[in-house]
Design a protein around this nucleic acid. Structure first.
Length: 727
DNA sequence: CTGAGAATGATTTTT
DNA sequence: TCATTCTCAG
């Protein structure tokens, strides 16, 4: 067995063999971070520095955890079962299952995904007669989640104002309800296990004594609670090894706190910091462009990627007339790459928001090019699958009211809103679950209760897959979808669920859920914690379409970064968020560094969005790249740079106000265009710089035009006064 | 309970 | 624009 340490570069080698103590590894894109992480673990074990049981390795995604597991298995020729490798949530779940009593949870506690959580909140608000216009369920959910992720319980969550006090009350009621129903949401897994260990000294010391080496991947994506959780588990004498890249922090919107990286250094005096800057993925020009771009960010720990490979090709820039034009151009370019022998799966088209895929898909479909779009519903999130799982949940954990409500009348069996309300009243009065209430006073729900009872009885001695099959059949779900016109795919998914159960073997049960958990609960946990693939994989060679966010961690021979327009990217919303543009720039950095050999950048003058034609300026990110690295496929756009904005709240891109129909608003390009300016025309203004006319009204002296100045915002200007120059 | 039509929004996403 | 969610009539 060899770890091939000699194949590592000096920095990688140093990171792998670093002495015990805390270490922060700043791992640039494509710098071999996973390799370092896994080799480090293997090296520690091989050296005898730690036993496999003494390692705790934490990732964000199941995919990353699996990859680490696989690589380690190959390196160590030992079953990596003894190692605690998993996602934050998976590991927290494991702790809670093992100590459910101490954590105050039922053995078969169920996990709520975001969908379930929202349903719980809605139900709560209704039962408390909360005005949903003043307290929208989504806001309440967000409030609860955000506070939990910061490690705050309801008691600490209230603010000074009335609304936040009310939110905190709802948070408290929500937690009580979850406790009653024996369910935990995602953040609760973390918070509950954190509290378990911080309050229970015996347990805490047990785990601290055990885990001598705690390793974290994608550290820049951790939220405050996750960081505290890590610090709690890595006790005195343990080594915390954090790998991350602040320049690739793109998840602030979901609670990630890049600040954890700087804090890490402060928390642990003597932290060893190693930078992995050699990139094994991209050619030099691509890296130079990425480096130059990210240098525009002020808040950085600092890092510069380099490669031993050559400079490679220039970055190709294309300015399209319209989004459709951009799509057509991409199709042509892709076809020509394919003719040169490049496989389609080696090409990715990246965009900022999912809505942008539509035009593209249309063009690809017309051209007959195979493509795969990432995003959308995943397997365990599909309605039919969730329904089937709800039946199984009721078998395993009857107190789960969410599950009860989801299927009590699905497929319909004559239990309408009235009957359900009666049950809810009865349950509330008796302080029991809906299921218990229905058991006591079945009423219209009698057949349903009988069904669940008999399912539970019959399922007792069946294998997991047989249980799932039984539920799918006896619930009437399969029948129901068979009768539906468009139900074929749903029926197929239900049988796929049976297959998934069959594939879910004992080893997985143990790994996912700790000791002695009933296989059904383990499977339900698996379904909640691993929502599954986005789409049927279809091993066929296809072009990859995805958002820049989902592209993180991937690489392709050729990458198209499309829609590089102010307002789209950086997104208009980001302009009003604190440090929003810096995060957008990091996203651009991520996008650029996905390409190995060829990088295309494109933007369109005109784009159809929300049924409205918008006239956008090229993204500032194009200007921020060294022009010498770019090869313009269309005449270069000379973006006139205005002085940095003071604090214009770019109330930009507001839908062009509807003109009073009485004045018969003149459409673009027709007679109504005032004073020689027309919609879509590029202009410059002495103060605001470059812009594009997006609307106009009035005639002669009263003529006004609306100009989109990008980061300076969108303004209505009187033509007679504004001294606009045609550009 | 169902279906039709209105209202409503509309970055990014993992667990 | 368009997809989802809500409301109300039948």
């Amino acid at each position: 067995m060899s770890l091939h340490l000699e194949q590592l570069n000096p920095e990688q080698h140093a990171a792998v063999t670093i002495a015990a103590g805390h270490a922060l590894i700043l791992a640039g894109a494509g710098s071999g971070k996973t390799r370092v992480l896994t080799t480090r673990i293997a090296w520690l074990i091989q050296q005898g520095a730690v036993s496999p049981a003494g390692v705790l390795a934490v990732t964000f995604t199941n995919k990353a955890a699996r990859e680490m597991q696989t690589r380690l298995g190959a390196m160590l020729a030992l079953n990596p079962r003894g190692l605690w490798i998993g996602t934050f949530h998976g590991l927290a779940n494991r702790l809670l299952r093992a100590h459910h009593r101490e954590a105050g949870l039922p053995r078969e506690f169920q996990i709520l995904d975001s969908q379930d959580q929202l349903a719980v909140v809605k139900r709560l608000l209704r039962s408390m007669n909360v005005d949903e216009d003043r307290f929208p369920p989504r806001d309440v959910q967000y409030f609860i989640m955000r506070h939990k992720e910061e490690g705050r319980r309801a008691a600490e969550a209230g603010g000074a104002d009335e609304a936040s006090r009310r939110h905190a009350e709802l948070y408290a009621a929500y937690d009580e309800q979850c406790q009653r129903e024996g369910v935990v949401d995602f953040a609760e897994l973390l918070l509950r296990s954190y509290e378990l260990l911080s309050r229970n000294e015996l347990l805490r010391e047990h785990y601290r004594a055990r885990f001598r080496h705690v390793l974290v991947d994608e550290f820049q994506d951790t939220n405050r609670l996750q960081y505290r959780w890590l610090k709690l588990l890595a006790g005195p004498g343990a080594s915390l090894f954090a790998v991350g890249d602040d320049d690739q922090s793109i998840y602030a919107f979901r609670g990630a706190n890049v600040g954890n990286m700087a804090e890490f250094e402060r928390d642990y005096a003597g932290t060893q910091v190693i930078r992995l800057e050699q990139n094994y993925r991209s050619h030099g020009n691509i890296l130079d462009a990425a480096n130059a771009l990210i240098a525009h960010n002020a808040k950085r720990l600092g890092k510069n990627l380099w490669t031993a490979a050559g400079a490679g090709e220039s970055l190709r820039v294309f300015e399209a007339q319209s989004d459709a034009d951009e799509a057509r151009w991409m199709v042509e370019e892709i076809q020509s790459l394919a003719r040169e022998g490049l496989r389609l799966q080696e090409i990715a088209v990246l965009y900022r928001s999912n809505a942008q895929s539509r035009v593209l898909e249309h063009a690809l479909f017309t051209a007959g090019l195979a493509y795969r779009v990432y995003g959308g519903l995943r397997f365990f999130e599909r309605a039919e699958v969730k329904h089937a799982l709800a039946y199984l949940r009721l078998i395993a954990a009857p107190a789960d009211d969410n599950a009860f409500l989801r299927v009590v009348n699905f497929p319909t069996r004559g239990i309408g809103a009235r009957s359900v309300e009666a049950l809810q009243d009865a349950a509330k009065a008796a302080g029991t679950s809906l299921y218990e209430a229905a058991l006591a006073q079945p009423g219209k729900a009698a057949p349903f209760i009988a069904l669940i009872e008999s399912l539970r009885e019959e399922a007792k001695d069946l294998t997991l897959a047989e249980k799932v099959e039984l539920a799918v059949a006896r619930s009437g779900l399969a029948e129901h979808y068979k009768r539906e016109r468009e139900g074929a795919e749903r029926v197929e998914n239900l049988s796929e669920l049976v297959n998934a159960a069959a594939a879910f073997d004992g080893e997985e049960i143990e790994r996912e859920s700790g000791e002695e958990v009933d296989p059904l609960t383990a499977f339900l946990t698996h379904a909640a914690l691993e929502a599954g693939e986005h789409q049927a994989g279809e091993g066929q060679d296809a072009l990859q379409l995805m958002t820049m966010h989902s592209a993180k961690g991937l690489e392709f021979h050729a990458v198209f970064v499309s829609g590089l327009e102010e307002g789209l990217f950086p997104h208009e919303q980001s302009l009003v968020e604190k440090e929003g543009v810096e995060e957008e720039r990091r996203l651009m950095y991520v996008a650029l560094t996905r390409a190995r050999r060829r990088l295309y950048l494109s933007f369109a003058q005109t784009r159809l969005l929300h049924g409205q034609t918008r006239y956008n300026l090229p993204s500032r990110f194009v200007d921020e790249l060294p022009q010498g690295l770019l090869k313009w496929l269309t005449p270069r756009v000379k973006a006139v740079q205005p002085k940095p904005a003071h604090h214009f709240t770019a109330g930009s891109f507001a839908r062009a106000p509807k003109r009073d129909p009485r004045f018969g608003g003149a459409p673009a390009g027709t007679g109504g265009a005032p004073s020689g300016f027309r919609v879509g025309q590029n202009v410059t203004h002495a103060k605001f710089g470059a812009g594009v006319i997006v609307d106009s009204e009035g005639q002669g002296q009263d003529a006004r035009v609306q100009v989109n100045f990008g980061r300076q915002g969108v303004k209505w200007l009187a033509v007679a006064v504004a001294k606009l120059q045609a550009a």
